[in-house]
Structures are given as C-alpha cells and as structure tokens.
Computed example of a mutant assay.
Amino acid sequence: MKTDIHPKTFKAKVVCNCGYQAEVLSTKGETVSVEICSNCHPFYTGKQRFVDTAGRIDRFRKKYAKFEEKKA
C-alpha cells in the first residue's frame, strides 16, 4: 500500500439537532453537526414530521395560496 496518499481520519463526535450523539471515524474533523439522523428521521421512526430547513413549505403555500382562495 502506498504511503502518504490516504486522508487523515479523526475519531469524530457526530451531534444531531435532536440531541443524539455518536462516535465515528471521519475525515471531516473532530465534531460533525447534522440536522437529521436515524433517531429522528421519519423513515426510521415511522412518525410523519415535516422537515423544512429552507422554508420550502412556506414558499409553496405562499405561491399557491391564490388557487386555494378561488375554490372557496
């Protein structure tokens, strides 16, 4: 195996917004922050929850609000 071609790995602590923490090997650094993990993602938990980090749902509702008003 060639020397000095592999990236430096760290024993990283991954921290999710829900509070979950795990220790993994990473090339990103010693602490890695994530927005969603397997403990809070709807696919793994079975609970429906809207994940709206960029305001997409609000923009969609605002854009199509005029169509909803015509129905009523």
Rank of each mutant, 00 (worst) to 15 (best):
M1I: 10
M1F: 05
M1S: 15
K2P: 08
T3Y: 13
T3F: 12
T3M: 13
T3V: 15
T3C: 10
D4H: 14
I5Y: 07
K8H: 08
T9S: 09
T9K: 07
F10Y: 13
F10W: 07
K11W: 02
K11L: 14
K11T: 10
K11I: 10
A12Y: 00
A12S: 15
K13Y: 02
V14S: 05
V14H: 01
V15A: 05
V15N: 01
V15D: 01
C16I: 02
C16G: 00
N17R: 11
N17W: 00
C18Q: 03
G19L: 01
Y20E: 01
Y20A: 01
Q21I: 10
Q21N: 14
A22N: 08
E23I: 09
E23P: 00
E23R: 05
E23C: 01
V24T: 13
V24S: 03
V24M: 04
S26Y: 00
T27L: 05
T27M: 09
T27H: 08
G29Y: 02
G29S: 04
G29R: 03
E30Y: 03
T31S: 11
T31C: 08
V32M: 01
S33G: 05
S33E: 15
V34G: 02
V34I: 15
V34K: 05
V34W: 03
E35Y: 10
I36Y: 02
S38N: 12
S38F: 09
S38I: 05
N39H: 11
N39K: 06
N39F: 01
N39V: 00
P42L: 10
P42K: 03
P42A: 07
P42I: 08
P42W: 05
Y44A: 07
Y44N: 11
T45F: 03
T45G: 06
T45A: 05
T45K: 06
G46F: 01
K47E: 11
Q48K: 12
R49D: 04
R49W: 04
R49N: 11
R49A: 13
R49E: 14
F50D: 06
V51T: 13
V51G: 05
D52M: 09
D52H: 08
T53L: 15
T53P: 00
A54L: 12
A54D: 12
G55Y: 07
R56V: 13
R56F: 13
I57Q: 12
I57C: 13
D58A: 09
D58Q: 15
R59N: 10
R59M: 10
R59L: 09
R59C: 04
F60C: 12
F60L: 12
F60N: 08
R61W: 09
R61E: 11
R61Y: 12
K62S: 15
K62A: 15
K62Q: 14
K62V: 03
K63G: 03
Y64V: 05
Y64M: 07
K66Q: 10
F67G: 08
K70D: 04
K70W: 06
K70R: 11
